[in-house]
Every structure is written in structure tokens, then in C-alpha cells.
Design a protein around this nucleic acid. Structure first.
Length: 544
DNA sequence: ATCCATAGCGCC
DNA sequence: AGGGCGCTATGGAT
């Protein structure tokens, strides 16, 4: 390479002659190379480089993201050692570039330079760590899935979710009234605020102020300890109606109102920021736009382009199915093969209603001890001993301060030093009962975290493999009238593909095939089913 | 002016 | 109940 790098050389879909050149400055710190066996780009940071390539119209098929892989390998209990583990150049950092002007502090903390030699060395160190790990095949799959997720995250922001701004504005106007001046309340909110003040006889009250509102409620004789809606809902008082309505609308206005619309929706697309694997468990996080919290109410404005449909697919009861697989629980796997897993629990007389099945299962995953869910736990243990023992073991490990690890090899962070110190102190003879109680409570809390970690984390791995396989297989569907099937949304256990209507059936098949392949990739021949709810709609809100 | 913690609520 | 998040508004601290 003289002045540039022929990026398109690695693009499986390149048009003849569509070579794109990026100069060395643009590629600094993100040098790529070709692996001989399975061609893919190896680079430092997908989030930094991939947007440049997309901007040039290049579609990258595969990559190996060294930063994300490093983060997994450096912590994984499957890995015996990563040569570069303490190297600051590869430590995790935010995947989404800051929108604002860099400050002096940012300049001082600028990332260390990564050059070609550094990339090659780190790649070799990572390959060695994988080969020497307890489960090389699982680790390889995890790193490939992480890297594919990194590509997909950038692409999702680039493509955007089709969004009808005019439709959303009609919703806002219908519920809130005319758009107010910045800093003002919309008419409907102001009217409700007046009502609340009148009923409470608190003329100057700002209902947005939690402490002031709580004080006014208590002065008016309401026996509440907070202003949470579920607590207000159980109180009989004329202020409750207007106040709950106020909170609901204030939320819409604040989180998804006119300023959100102008900040995040442009040219008919909603382009939020995703941070693949930004959560400790491996789930995606988001920054900017609230990609992962799009309220149901707002989904009516998510409308496919003319001539297209949205293929909306979500994995049904994903976490229990994942638990059945990691725990090798044959009985629970059998239940997974009968479609609705919760209904299967009812049919098998494990519990008496579907609602009970759901609450019992969630209780097992989250560590509930009391209430309805706690009462149902013995029944669950009797029917699914392997699955319940698996999450119990994860909880016990966490309580003991140990690390737990997902199926593919993501390990939980160790508890904090202050947590460990509190546990050590509680074990001393001179510790007082209060300290012992506090330590015990903290131990249980950390146990609930590790219990959930193994399931949520492995579910995230399945979902990532699903997404990665689908991303690849959509390419093969080709185009209709110059338009292709594109991934436009990913939400933990749900994907949306926007596709020409003529491709809807093919996309639905692809989505299901990818789910089946993801199951086999992770769990081989273990007979657990990953059922999907799939619907082709024009409007996202019609999928529910 | 800027940072940080908290409350509250949206999603899975 | 119980796990994981992000975002907004608020209010206190610096």
C-alpha cells in the first residue's frame, strides 16, 4: 500500500471497480490485515473506523475488534492469561464518539496511539489466549459475535429506523396540545398542573419537583412515602387522577417530545447511538436518542418506507430457554420444544396458570425469595432440578465473592473491595450484628446479580449470534427495485428488518433460520428450541 | 458554571 | 418481589 489501502478488496459485495481508498491518516490506529483462513479485517476499534467505511459506501463483511475482544479475554475465567492484559492501549473505552467539543480533560486522556505493529502484536496475543483457553471454540465464537455486533451497531445507526416525524407530531399535539416555547409547559400539561395545585391547595407547586410534590401530597392528607405512580395508584384521592395523567404526559414530553424529535430524527429516520456489549452482562447499551427505551406509545410513528414492510421478530421466553440449555435440563428443554414455554408449564401441571408460570420463572432468574414467586419455587425445583440448581449455584458463587461465567466465556466483574472488606469483617468474632446483617444483605444482592448474569449474559450471546447470522444471510436475499432487506433495529431479544414487501416471506424464513443456527452454534445438538414471534407489518405498533 | 446523586419511569 | 440498563428533571455541592 503506497498512499492508501484498498478497503474494498475485502468487501464480499463490492461492485466491480468500486475500490475505495482511505489514506493512512484516516486509518491511523485502525490498521487492518487479512487472515488467510477466514478473511476478516483485524482492527482496533470498529466504532471509530466503520463509520468512515460506511460513509464511502463500503460494506465490511467480517472483522475482529481488538478492543472488545481484549475486554472479554482480559476478564474471562476461561482464559489462562492474555499477554497484553495490563496494556492500557487496549483497555475499554466508550464506543460512541462524544458529540460535544473535546475539553482539556479529554485531550489529556486521549487514547494512546495504536500502530500496525501494535495491532499485529495484540492480535497474536489474543489468538494465543483463545487457543490456550479452557473452551477455544466458545471463545472464538464469542469474539466473532462481539465483532459482528460491533459492525451491526454502527450500521444500525447509519441506516436508522424509519420514522414518520409528522405522525409523531400529531401524537404530541393530540396529547399535549400545541408545541410550547422552549422551557414552557405544553398546554395540556399546564392545565393538569393547575388542577393538581387546586386540589392540593398548593398555589406555587411545581409538580416536576419530587420533594415539593411529596410535601404537598402529605399536607393534603395522603399517606404516601414517595410519588411513584404505583404508590399513588392505590390511594383514593381526587388528586391522583390528574397527577398520574400529568406524570405520564410529562414523561412523553420530556423523553420523546419535540426536542427529542428534532435532535434524533432526520430525513425520516431515527438514528440513535448504540454501544454493543456496553452492559456488563454483554447486552447492548445506548447513548443518545434512547434507542433501547423507545416507548410502546411512540412506536406508531415507526413506519416502513413506501413499498416496504417491517419484519419484527422477537425471541419468546429467551432467558428460560437459555437456562434450559446451559443447565442441560432435559425436562425444561422438552417444554421449550412445545412452543409457548409458559403454557407448557401449565400443561405439565408444574403450575396452574400461565401467569404463575411466568412469575415463577422470572423469580428463579432474578432470585425472588418471597411472595407469589417464592411460593412457586419448590414446584419449579421439583420439575426442573438441573435448571434451578444452575442458577442457585451461580447465586452461591456470587455470595462467596466468586466470579461467574456465561456459556461462551464472559465473566462477571469481581465484587468491589469494599464489598469484600465488609464480608471479611462480618466473619470476625468482634463484628457487631448490624455489620453482619449489612454484609449478609450485600452478599445476597451480589448473589442475585451473578445469578442473573449467567442467564442474561448467555441470552445476550445467543441474541448476538442470531443478529450476526441474520446480518450475513440478508445479503443473499438480493434486491428488489434497487432496495435490499436491511437490519434497522435490535433490542436485546428482538430485531426489525426493513425489506421490500416482496421479500417479506424470505426475510421471515431467514430470521427463523438464523435463530435455529444460533441455537446450534451455542449449544450444539442439545434439543432446546428458540421460538420466535415473527410478524410483517407496516407500522411497528402493529407487531405487538 | 459545572458536576454528581437521586427520583422516577421507559425498555428488556 | 427480584436482575440489567438510559434519560430527564431536580437540587445540592463545588
Amino acid at each position: 500500500m503506497a498512499d492508501g489501502v484498498e478497503v474494498a478488496e475485502l468487501d464480499e459485495r463490492r461492485e466491480p471497480g468500486a475500490t475505495v481508498r482511505l489514506d493512512r491518516a484516516e486509518l491511523a490506529g485502525h490498521v487492518a490485515r487479512l487472515e488467510e483462513r477466514s478473511p476478516r479485517w483485524v482492527w482496533a476499534d470498529t466504532a471509530a473506523l466503520h463509520p468512515l467505511l460506511l460513509g464511502q459506501g463500503v460494506r465490511v463483511a467480517r472483522c475482529h475488534d481488538l478492543r472488545m475482544s481484549h475486554a472479554v479475554l482480559a476478564r474471562s475465567a476461561y482464559v489462562r492469561g492474555l499477554a497484553s492484559a495490563e496494556d492500557a492501549r487496549w483497555s475499554a473505552r466508550d464506543a460512541v464518539p462524544e458529540e460535544s467539543e473535546p475539553t482539556l480533560l479529554d485531550a489529556a486522556a486521549a487514547e494512546p496511539e495504536v500502530d500496525l505493529a501494535g495491532v499485529v502484536d495484540e492480535h497474536r496475543a489474543q489468538q494465543d489466549a483463545v487457543v490456550g483457553s479452557l473452551h477455544p471454540a466458545r471463545m472464538r465464537l464469542l469474539l466473532a459475535a462481539e465483532s459482528a455486533g460491533a459492525l451491526a451497531g454502527v450500521e444500525l445507526t447509519h441506516v436508522g429506523l424509519p420514522f414518520d416525524a409528522a405522525e409523531h407530531e400529531r401524537l404530541l399535539t393530540r396529547l399535549l396540545g400545541a408545541r410550547p416555547l422552549p422551557g414552557q409547559r405544553p398546554p395540556a400539561l399546564e392545565a393538569l398542573a393547575v388542577q393538581v395545585r387546586d386540589v392540593l391547595e398548593a398555589p406555587g407547586l411545581n409538580p416536576d419537583s419530587g420533594p415539593d410534590l411529596l410535601q404537598a401530597l402529605r399536607r393534603a392528607g395522603l399517606d404516601v412515602a414517595s410519588t411513584r405512580q404505583w404508590e399513588l395508584a392505590r390511594v383514593e384521592h381526587p388528586v391522583v387522577g390528574p397527577l398520574l395523567e400529568y406524570k405520564k404526559l410529562a414523561r412523553l414530553h420530556g423523553a420523546n417530545g419535540w426536542s427529542w424529535l428534532s435532535a434524533w430524527v432526520a430525513d425520516g429516520r431515527f438514528r440513535p447511538g448504540y454501544i454493543p456489549s456496553g452492559v456488563v452482562t454483554g447486552r447492548w447499551a445506548a447513548r443518545g436518542g434512547g434507542a433501547l427505551q423507545l416507548p410502546k406509545q411512540v412506536r406508531a410513528a415507526v413506519v416502513a418506507e413506501e413499498g416496504c414492510v417491517l419484519v419484527v421478530a422477537d425471541a419468546a421466553q429467551l432467558e428460560p430457554r437459555v437456562l434450559a440449555a446451559v443447565a442441560r435440563d432435559e425436562a425444561m428443554a422438552a417444554a421449550s420444544r412445545r412452543g409457548d414455554l409458559y403454557q407448557a408449564l401449565v400443561d405439565d401441571r408444574v403450575v396452574d396458570t400461565r401467569a404463575h408460570a411466568k412469575v415463577a420463572m422470572l423469580g428463579a432468574l432474578y432470585g425472588a425469595t418471597s411472595g407469589e414467586s417464592g411460593r412457586l419455587m419448590p414446584r419449579l425445583q421439583r420439575s426442573y432440578p438441573a435448571a434451578t440448581a444452575y442458577v442457585e449455584a451461580a447465586a452461591r458463587a456470587g455470595e462467596a465473592g466468586e466470579v461467574v461465567t456465561t456459556w461462551l466465556g464472559r465473566s462477571s466483574p469481581p465484587p468491589s473491595e469494599s464489598w469484600a472488606e465488609a464480608q471479611r469483617w462480618a466473619a470476625q468474632p468482634e463484628a457487631d450484628p448490624d455489620d453482619r446483617r449489612t454484609a449478609r444483605t450485600q452478599a445476597r444482592e451480589w448473589g442475585r446479580f451473578t445469578r442473573n448474569f449467567v442467564v442474561q449474559g448467555t441470552a445476550a450471546e445467543w441474541a448476538l449470534c442470531w443478529l450476526a447470522d441474520l446480518r450475513r444471510s440478508l445479503v443473499a436475499l438480493g434486491e428488489v427495485d434497487g432496495r435490499t432487506a436491511r437490519l434497522v433495529y435490535f433490542l436485546h431479544d428482538e430485531v426489525i428488518v426493513e425489506a421490500p414487501a416482496a421479500l417479506a416471506g424470505a426475510v421471515e424464513d431467514a430470521v427463523r433460520a438464523s435463530a435455529a443456527r444460533a441455537g446450534r452454534l451455542l449449544f450444539g445438538s442439545f434439543p432446546v428450541d428458540f421460538a420466535l414471534d415473527v410478524r410483517s407489518v407496516v407500522r411497528y405498533s402493529d407487531a405487538g
